[in-house]
Nucleic acid binder design. Structure first.
Lengths: 347, 347
DNA sequence: CTGAAAGCGCTTACAG
DNA sequence: CTGAAAGCGCTTACAG
C-alpha cells in the first residue's frame, strides 16, 4: 500500500539515506540534478513518508494531544478549532482524546503517552478538581490547560473570570438595579466561584446585597438553567436583574422567564457570559461578557508548542474579557423614574 | 523520559521478547510466576508501550483520522463525539485534521496517510462537490463519509434528506397551510437539493406551488439566514409557513420575523431540520425534523472500523429522521376558520 | 557530493 | 516455557 524510501531511492539510483536527506530538504547534500531525480521519483511512485518511523527515531511524533471534556460544548469546540489550526500551522497533527464522565483521566493521558504526543492541551473544565488528572500529567507530559488543574504545575491560559463577574455587576449597577439574582454554574468549579465572587463583591462595594436565596446553582445545561430560573421565580420574583454564568444557560433562563410572563428587559434584565455566535439573535439579543475562546485556544496551543521545544513559558496568561451590550439589559422600571437618573449621572 | 521493553525485561530477568508477549496478553507463554514478575516490573518503572514502534512493525497505527470541516458546527461536533467514543471503545486513537476553507483537502488526506491512520472518517459537507477530496481518498485510504463525496466510491452513512423535506411539507400541509416559503442552505449542496426537492415535490403532489420568489438561499449561518428571511419578507410577506434548512438558521429567521413584528406561529409557522439541544428552548420552541447525528456518527465509525478490518460494508446506510412538533407551527389563521378543518379531517 | 552503519522500540516467526 | 533473529521505515552521525 505504501512505498518506502528504499523504493524511491532505487528508482532514482541513489542510496535511501541520500533520498531521506533530500526529501527532508537538507540543503547542499546533492547536486541539483540528483535532487530533481529523487523528488520526481518520490512523486511518481506516490511516496508518503512514514511519520511512525520518523517519530521512532526522532523520539517525538510531531503530534499534540487534546484532552477534552465535551466536544459538543459550543465554547470548548472553539478551543479545539483554534488549537488545531495553530498546531497544524507548525506541522503538528492533533490526537484528540475525550474523557467521558466517570472515566479516569489518567487513562486518557496514558493513551496520549502511548502515542508519544509531544504534549497535551487540556480542555476539560469538568476535571478541574480531579486530582488524578494533575497527577497523571505532571512530570511525564508537557501540558497546558485552558482551565485550572488540581495540584498546580500546569501552565494555564484562560481569562479572568473574576473580572467577568465584576464587569457584569458593574453594568447592572450602572443601569440602576438594586435587586439581583444569579444562575451560576456548578459551585465546585473555579470559573463559577470566580465569576460569582467578582459579581458579588462588586455589588457589596456598591452597598448592595445578593441574597443567598437568589443564587441558583445549575449545571451549564439548558434544562438545568431552566429549572434554576424557575426556582428563583418561585422563591422571590422581585429581582430585576439576573446574572447568568453562560449564554447557553441564558437561553434556558430566557425560556423560563417567558413561561412566567416576565419580559426581558422590561421586567428583568439579563447579562451572561461567553458571547456565543447566537447571542445577538436571541429574543432579546443578549447582553453578555465576551470571552475570547478562539484567542485563548490559539495562545494555549502556542504556549504548549513552546513548552514542547523546551522554551520558557509563563505559568499563567489571562486574556481580557469585555462587555457587549445588547437588548437584554435596561434600567429597572421602578427605579428608572426615581433614584437612578441621578445615580447614573454621577458615575 | 520513557522506559523501554528492554528495561522492564532486565528488571524482571527475562528477554525483552518474552516481556513483549506477556505484556500483549499472549496466553500460556510463561509461567504464572514470571508473568507476575514482568507485569510488576512494567508497573514499577512506569512502562508505557510505544505505539509508534508497534505501529511500525504491525503496519497499522490503531488510529483513525477524522477529516473535518468545521469543528464548531453544533451538528458536526456531535459526529465527532460519537465517532471518538466508538473508535476509543475499539482501542483506536483519533487523529483530527481540519480542512480550512480554501485549503486543498488532498493535503489533509496526505497528513493522515503520513501518520498511517487505518482509515478516515469524513465529516465535511462543504467539500461535497470538491473533486480533489474523492481523488485523494479513493484507493489509498479506507474511508467512510457522513456526506456525499464527489466521484463516489466512498461508503456513505447519513440520513434521508429527501424524506426530511417531505416530512416538513407534510406537516405544514396537514395544518392547512397554502402559502409557503423556504430558507435553504447553499444550493450547491446535496443536502440542500434533497431537502428542497422533498419539500417542493410533496407540495406539488398536494396541488400547491412553491413560488421561486419565495425560495431564499442562505449559507447555514445565523447572519445569512437573517438576511434571507428579510429578503423574503420584503418580496412577498403573504406566506404563512416557512421551511428552514436547519435549526441554527431558524434562530436567525425567528429573529428576522420578530424584527418585522410577525408572530410565530400565529402569523407564520416555522419547521426546520436538526433538532439541536436548544430547539425546545427557543422562542417559540421549535418544530423541527430530528436528525440523528450521534447515531449517524456512531454507525459511520463502526462501518469504518469494519472497512479497516477488511470486512464487507454496505455502500450506503440511511438513518431515519422524524418530526418533532413543538410550538413554532400551527394552523394558519385565515384558513383555520374555513378550508382547513375539512381537509385536515380527510387526511 | 554520496554511501554505509547503527539504532529508534517494538512484534513475529522460528528454535530450542 | 524462554530466547535470539530478523525486520518494520526511517534519521543521524560518520566516512569517504
Amino acid at each position: 500500500m505504501y512505498v518506502s524510501l528504499k523504493d524511491v531511492a532505487a528508482r532514482a539510483g541513489v542510496s535511501f539515506q541520500t533520498a531521506s536527506k533530500v526529501l527532508n530538504g537538507h540543503p547542499g547534500v546533492v547536486s541539483e540534478r540528483t535532487r530533481g531525480r529523487i523528488l520526481k521519483a518520490a512523486k511518481d511512485i506516490g511516496y508518503v513518508p512514514n511519520a511512525l518511523a520518523r517519530g521512532l527515531v526522532r523520539q517525538t511524533s510531531l503530534t499534540v494531544g487534546v484532552l477534552i471534556d465535551d466536544v459538543t460544548d459550543p465554547a470548548l469546540s472553539q478551543f479545539i478549532l483554534a488549537a488545531e489550526r495553530t498546531a497544524a500551522a507548525q506541522g503538528h497533527a492533533v490526537l484528540i482524546v475525550a474523557v467521558e464522565p466517570g472515566m479516569d483521566p489518567a487513562l486518557a493521558v496514558r493513551k496520549m503517552r502511548e502515542h508519544r504526543v509531544g504534549g497535551a492541551l487540556v480542555i476539560a473544565p469538568s476535571l478541574e478538581e480531579d486530582p488524578r488528572l494533575g497527577m497523571a500529567l505532571r512530570g511525564p507530559l508537557p501540558a497546558v490547560s485552558v482551565n485550572h488543574v488540581h495540584g498546580g504545575g500546569i501552565p494555564l491560559v484562560g481569562s479572568d473570570h473574576g473580572a467577568t463577574g465584576t464587569i457584569a455587576a458593574e453594568h447592572l449597577l450602572s443601569l440602576g438595579h438594586r435587586r439581583f439574582a444569579t444562575v451560576t454554574g456548578p459551585r465546585g468549579r473555579r470559573v463559577v466561584r470566580s465569576r460569582h465572587h467578582g459579581f458579588r463583591n462588586r455589588l457589596h462595594e456598591a452597598g448592595m446585597r445578593l441574597s443567598p436565596r437568589l443564587v441558583a446553582e445549575a449545571d451549564w445545561t439548558l434544562t438545568g438553567a431552566f429549572a434554576a430560573a424557575n426556582r428563583l421565580l418561585e422563591t422571590d420574583p422581585a429581582f430585576t436583574a439576573l446574572f447568568v454564568h453562560n449564554d447557553v444557560m441564558a437561553v434556558g433562563v430566557l425560556h423560563a422567564l417567558r413561561s412566567h410572563g416576565r419580559r426581558v428587559p422590561d421586567d428583568c434584565s439579563i447579562v451572561s457570559c461567553d458571547d456565543l455566535e447566537l447571542a445577538p439573535f436571541l429574543a432579546p439579543p443578549l447582553t453578555t461578557v465576551h470571552v475570547p475562546f478562539q484567542e485563548t485556544g490559539e495562545q494555549a496551543a502556542r504556549v504548549l508548542l513552546h513548552l514542547i521545544r523546551g522554551e520558557p513559558v509563563p505559568s499563567r496568561v489571562f486574556l481580557p474579557t469585555h462587555l457587549v451590550v445588547r437588548d437584554s439589559t435596561s434600567a429597572p422600571r421602578e427605579t428608572s423614574r426615581s433614584a437612578v437618573p441621578a445615580e447614573h449621572g454621577s458615575l
